[in-house]
Computed example of a mutant assay.
Amino acid sequence: MKMAELSTVSAVAVATIKFYLRERLLPAGERTSPNQADYTEQHVRRLRLIRGLLDVGGLSVAEAHRVLDALDSEQPLQQIFGVAQAAVSEHIDPASVPASALARVDSVTDGWLVSPDNPGRLAAAQVIASLEAIGHLSARGWVERYAAAALLIAEADLDEIDAIPDREGKAETVVVGTVLGDALFSGLRRTAQEHVSALRYQPGSAAHHHPSLAESP
């Protein structure tokens, strides 16, 4: 297909496609003349992946470039995970995170095979430090329950990857799951919060009439 058809099928403007080509996010088509090229369904798929990374995942062009380069490489899946995690994570200087907060994260993830500079470990410790500073770190197992939920989500992520037979599909799922999974879980968490708060606090609910039942965990 020509670029105009690629634009129609993918719902991406021609100018945007040309930008992705210049930035080497999208592989070039097969040249048929100095000013013409043919594109395939693989280009349509890549365009949809690019839009997902940029528009939904919130990556910058440079971050998306690093992620896609890793996806197109022969790196082991664990290394691709690292690239994707770095792309979606704020850079945090380990020295800036209080040792007590890091110890709390290590306590609730005891037994996990995690590197000291894992961006999630540092980010979680930074959040815990902030919660402690404002007096909102619950002693009723809030962090521990989050850790348990995170482990379930990670198992779901890896089960999804393991179900895919080919290496290319596995690598793409690593990228998509890491970048878009955060947005998916955030959306489902907010949905669940409305559901549970309605069950507990709306007039007529059992928790509304019995405040002890409505305590936060």
Rank of each mutant, 00 (worst) to 15 (best):
L53F: 09
N118R: 11
S7Y: 06
Y39W: 07
A87I: 00
N35C: 00
D55K: 15
F81P: 00
G58Q: 13
D117P: 04
T16F: 05
H65C: 05
L49Q: 09
T109A: 07
S73C: 13
T8W: 04
V61P: 13
P119K: 08
G82S: 13
E90H: 11
Q78L: 08
D117C: 07
S89D: 05
L54A: 03
L113K: 15
S10I: 00
R51F: 02
S33M: 09
F19E: 01
I80K: 06
A70V: 00
L113I: 05
S7L: 05
S89H: 13
P76Y: 10
A70I: 00
V44K: 10
R31L: 09
R46A: 15
V88P: 03
I17C: 11
D110N: 08
A37D: 09
E41M: 12
T109E: 05
D117T: 06
D69L: 09
I17W: 10
R24P: 02
D55A: 13
A15N: 14
A15Q: 09
L6E: 07
A37K: 01
L68F: 07
Q36M: 12
Q85G: 00
V105Q: 04
T8F: 09
G58V: 04
P98Y: 12
L71R: 14
P76I: 06
G111I: 11
G58C: 15
A95I: 00
H65G: 03
S115Y: 00
L47P: 15
P34D: 12
A99S: 14
V56K: 08
G111C: 09
G82M: 01
R46F: 02
G57Y: 12
Y20D: 00
E30C: 02
Q85C: 13
L59W: 09
L68N: 05
V97N: 07
L54R: 11
L6W: 09
A11W: 01
L102H: 02
N118G: 03
Q85S: 13
S73A: 14
V56S: 10
R24Q: 12
V12W: 03
S7Q: 09
R51C: 10
S33N: 06
R48N: 13
R24N: 13
V44N: 13
N118D: 15
R104T: 15
A64L: 04
A62R: 12
E41W: 01
R24L: 06
L21E: 11
T109Q: 04
P34Y: 06
H91R: 10
L54Q: 03
V44S: 15
T8Q: 12
S115F: 00
L26S: 08
L49N: 03
K18T: 10
T8G: 14
V83R: 01
L77M: 14
T32S: 15
A99I: 01
G58N: 09
V105R: 00
R104K: 07
Y39G: 06
A87W: 01
A62V: 13
A87R: 02
V14Y: 07
